[in-house]
C-alpha cells in the first residue's frame, strides 16, 4: 500500500511537470513499455512486471534481457525502447554518451561478490584465503568480463593471490562448474548464489561490500510515453520494486 502511494505520488509529480496529465491508472489506451534489462535482472524484473501491471492494468511490459553491453549496442543502433536498466556504469555510459537518455540515470541496486561452494562444502572452504590453496579446484570469471574484473579487485583488496584452475567466460559458467561439483570454490555475484537455490552454498566474504557493481536505470528519449516509462523507473526504485530485488539478493543503492 505504501508502495502504491509512493508511485501514485511520483506519477502525480511527473504528470504535473508534463502539463497534460494522462493518468496511466485510468482507462487510457493500452500502453506497451519496452524495457531493456541486464540478464542478471531476469527473474526479479519478471516479478516487478507482474506487480506493476497489477497496479497499472492498461500497461503491458515487454522485456529485452541480455548482456548489458549488447543491449547498449542495440540502443545505440537505434532500437526503439522505453527504459534501460544496465548492470554497470560503463554500459549505461555508452547510451548516455549517445544522448539517448532523459535525465540522469539513477542507481537502483548494487550487486557484490560472494564465495560459493558446492552443496555440503566438500573441501571445507571457510574464506577468501582458501582461493590461494593450489590443491583446491578454483573457478573465477575471466578478467575480460565484469565479474572477473570485480573478482580481481576483491582479491587485490583482501591481499589474496588466487590459484584458479579455470577462468570462465561468464558468471553462469562459473556457477555451473560449482553446481556440478567440478570446483571446490568460486567467486560469483550474491544474486547468482540466491538464484542457484540449495544446489550451492554461499559464504560471505568480509570486504566484499566494498567491491560493488552499481546498476543504473534510465528513461530513454525514444520512449513515446515518457510518463509511463518514468512510472516504471519509480516503481523499481520504490518499496515494492526494492523488496523484490532485495529478495533476489541485490543490495540497496547507497
Amino acid at each position: 500500500m505504501v508502495a502504491a502511494a509512493v508511485v501514485v505520488a511520483a506519477l502525480a509529480l511527473a504528470g504535473c511537470s508534463a502539463q497534460s496529465a494522462p493518468s496511466p491508472t485510468a482507462t487510457a489506451a493500452p500502453v506497451t513499455l519496452t524495457v531493456y534489462a541486464a540478464a542478471s535482472l531476469t527473474d526479479s524484473f519478471a516479478d516487478i512486471a507482474k506487480e506493476f501491471e497489477k497496479q497499472y492494468p492498461s500497461v503491458k511490459i515487454t522485456y529485452n534481457f541480455g548482456g548489458s553491453s549488447a543491449l547498449a549496442a542495440q540502443l545505440v543502433a537505434a532500437s526503439p525502447g522505453d527504459v534501460f536498466a544496465a548492470a554497470s556504469a560503463t554500459t549505461m555510459k555508452t547510451v548516455t554518451d549517445a544522448s539517448l537518455v532523459t535525465g540522469a540515470p539513477q542507481i537502483f541496486v548494487t550487486n557484490s561478490l560472494e564465495l560459493v561452494v558446492p552443496k555440503g562444502n566438500p573441501a571445507n572452504v571457510t574464506g577468501l584465503g582458501d582461493l590461494a590453496n593450489p590443491d583446491l579446484s578454483i573457478a573465477l570469471c575471466a578478467a575480460a568480463v565484469p565479474c572477473g574484473a570485480a573478482a580481481l579487485r576483491l582479491l587485490a583488496q583482501e591481499g589474496v593471490t588466487a590459484a584458479p584452475d579455470t577462468l570462465e567466460q561468464d558468471v553462469k559458467a562459473v556457477l555451473a562448474k560449482v553446481e556440478l561439483g567440478e570446483v571446490d570454490a568460486a567467486l560469483v555475484y550474491r544474486t547468482d548464489v540466491t538464484a542457484a537455490g540449495d544446489k550451492v552454498e554461499g559464504i560471505d566474504v568480509p570486504g566484499a561490500d566494498r567491491v560493488v557493481n552499481r546498476y543504473p536505470i534510465a528513461v530513454l528519449k525514444s520512449a513515446p510515453n515518457q510518463t509511463t516509462a518514468r512510472a516504471f523507473v519509480d516503481f523499481v526504485l520504490g518499496t515494492t520494486g526494492q523488496a523484490i530485488l532485495t529478495k533476489a539478493g541485490f543490495g540497496a543503492p547507497n
Binding site: 568480463v145 584452475d165 579455470t166 577462468l167 570462465e168 559458467a173
Partner: peptide
C-alpha cells in the same frame, strides 16, 4: 572445450577460447 576443460592460459585456453574472451575486451 570451454565447458569440459575450462579456460586457463597455457593449460586449457585454446585459440578459439582466447578469441571469444578478446571479443568482450
Amino acid at each position: 572445450t570451454i565447458t569440459f576443460a575450462g579456460s586457463f592460459p597455457g593449460t586449457t585456453q585454446t585459440l578459439p577460447v582466447t578469441t571469444y574472451l578478446e571479443l568482450q575486451r
